[in-house]
Design a protein around this nucleic acid. Structure first.
Length: 280
DNA sequence: CCCCAGTCCTGCGGGC
DNA sequence: TGCCCGCAGGACTGGG
C-alpha cells in the first residue's frame, strides 16, 4: 500500500518525465473492470493536457504530482494498489488505467496501473490544487516534520496516537505500516492517547518517523505479500524485510532482551501491530 | 471535535 | 472442484 516511501520511490522513478511533452493521453476501457475515477472526465482531461510539457515531478504526501505550465497539476493518488511505470510492461493489461505518450526526452510512455481501481487521477488548476492539497488540507511532509510541529498539531488530541498519525491534515505521508513501525521504534503503545505523550516521547516519535521513512525510501519501499507494489522500473521494494512488527502477529519481538510477542489489535478500523512488552 | 460505519474496488484464501 | 463470503484498507461521507 503506497505510503510516503513508496510514493517517493515512484516520484524518483519517473523524474525523467520532467521536460517531456504529454503528446497523447489514453484511457483504456473494458467491460470487466470499473474505470479509475478521473476528473475532469476523460475527454476533457485529455484535451486539457495533450501538448503540454511537464515542468516538474513532485510529491504531495501520498500523491504523485506532475506540475504543468501555469501551475496546473496532474495528481495521481495510488491508494491501495496504484502504480506508475516508465517504459515498463504492466503486471496485467487488464488493469492499465491510463497511458501518457511522451516526446522530447528519453522516456516514451508513462503508464498508470491499478489492480483494484481505488486510486484517483485528477487534473487541478493552481487554485484547485491549493484548495484540495494546500497547507490547510495536508500537514507538513513527514520527512520534514519537527517534534514541535507534531506535538503542536496532535498534542491536545485524545485520539489514540496510532490513529492520529494517519491524519493527513496533521502530517502528510504516513500510513498504516510506517505508523506502527515508528511507534515500535519509539517504544510507544499505539493505543495511548496523544494527550498523554510527553515531550520526550514526541521527540522520539518524530525521530523514529524520520529514520524509518528515510530508510524505507532507501530500500524503495515495502512490497507486501500480495506483490502489488513495484517501483516505476518494475522491481520490488526491499523494506518489507526490515519490518519489525507490521503483519508479524504472534512472532517474537525483535528487540534485544525483549521476550514479548507481537500482538494485533484494531484501532480506527485498521490492523495495528505492537509489542505489549516493550511499548508502554 | 471525534468516532463509527459504510463506500469505493478486486483478488485471494478459508470453509464447506 | 467450485462457490460464497469475508477480508485487505486510504480517503471520504454522513450520522451521532
Amino acid at each position: 500500500m503506497p505510503e510516503l516511501p513508496e510514493v517517493e520511490t515512484m516520484r524518483r522513478g519517473i523524474a525523467a518525465v520532467a521536460g517531456c511533452v504529454l503528446v497523447r493521453v489514453h484511457f483504456p476501457s473494458r467491460s470487466d473492470v470499473k474505470p479509475l475515477p478521473v476528473s475532469p472526465a476523460r475527454r476533457t482531461f485529455a484535451r486539457r493536457v495533450e501538448g503540454l510539457a511537464v515542468v516538474a515531478v513532485e510529491r504531495a504526501g501520498k500523491r504523485v504530482v506532475l506540475r504543468l505550465p501555469r501551475d496546473e497539476r496532474i495528481v495521481f493518488e495510488p491508494r491501495m494498489t496504484g502504480l506508475v511505470l516508465l517504459d515498463e510492461e504492466a503486471p496485467t493489461q487488464k488493469h492499465v488505467r491510463a497511458t501518457f505518450e511522451l516526446e522530447g526526452g528519453t522516456p516514451r510512455r508513462l503508464t498508470i496501473w491499478d489492480r483494484r481501481g481505488l486510486g484517483t487521477l485528477r487534473l487541478y488548476t493552481a487554485a484547485e490544487f491549493a484548495e484540495a492539497l494546500g497547507p490547510h488540507a495536508l500537514g507538513p511532509d513527514a520527512l520534514e516534520l519537527t517534534p514541535d510541529q507534531l506535538q503542536e498539531r496532535l498534542g491536545a488530541s485524545r485520539r489514540a496516537v496510532k490513529v492520529a498519525l494517519l491524519d493527513q491534515r496533521a502530517l502528510a505521508g504516513v500510513g498504516n505500516i510506517y505508523a506502527v513501525e515508528a511507534l515500535n521504534a519509539s517504544r510507544i503503545d499505539p493505543r495511548r492517547s496523544c494527550a498523554g505523550l510527553t515531550r520526550r516521547e514526541w521527540r522520539a516519535l518524530t525521530r523514529a518517523l524520520l529514520e524509518i521513512l528515510t530508510e524505507a525510501v532507501r530500500y524503495e519501499g515495502s512490497t507486501l505479500g500480495d506483490g502489488t507494489y513495484r517501483t516505476a522500473l518494475n522491481v520490488d521494494g526491499g523494506y518489507q524485510n526490515h519490518h519489525r512488527v507490521y503483519a508479524r502477529e504472534g512472532l517474537k519481538c525483535p528487540r534485544k532482551k525483549c521476550s514479548g510477542r507481537i500482538e494485533r489489535v484494531v484501532l480506527g478500523q485498521r490492523a495495528t501491530f505492537f509489542c505489549p512488552s516493550c511499548q508502554a
